[in-house]
């Protein structure tokens, strides 16, 4: 099953500039493994070594944060779209 994945600016160097790519998989974890095959280096920018999402990264399934679903095990349908959304934060000190 092929899913559209929205790639944010900081990761586009890895996807050769593409802002949207297709990946195969039945859940979020499988999609990330498939992305890694085609775009080596992408997984470590999204996941910690134990496979959990990095704190600087959010993934949305359509309009919902996967942390409020089954996280990396969230199941997908072929009409779904995943968006990788960087965490944007900071402050004066």
């Amino acid at each position: 099953m092929s899913i559209k994945v929205r790639i944010p600016t900081p990761l586009r160097k890895i996807t050769n500039g593409a802002d949207e790519v297709a990946a195969e998989g039945g859940n979020v974890s499988e999609i990330i493994e498939d992305l890694e095959k085609n775009y080596p280096g992408l997984k470590e920018r999204i996941c910690e070594p134990d496979g959990k999402l990095r704190r600087f990264v959010n993934i949305y399934l359509n309009d919902e944060d996967i942390r409020f679903k089954k996280n990396m095990e969230t199941e997908l349908k072929d009409t779904d779209e995943l968006s990788i959304i960087p965490a944007i934060a900071g402050g004066r000190c």
């Binding site: 600016t9 900081p10 600087f56 965490a87 900071g90 004066r92």
Partner: peptide
């Protein structure tokens, strides 16, 4: 993105760098 630094200079802090992302 933009954000403000109340009573602080308009240059990035360590926190800004910690969270900063390439390309933006």
């Amino acid at each position: 993105f933009y954000h403000s630094h109340p009573d602080h200079p308009d240059r990035p802090s360590e926190t800004d760098r910690e969270w900063g992302q390439v390309g933006y």
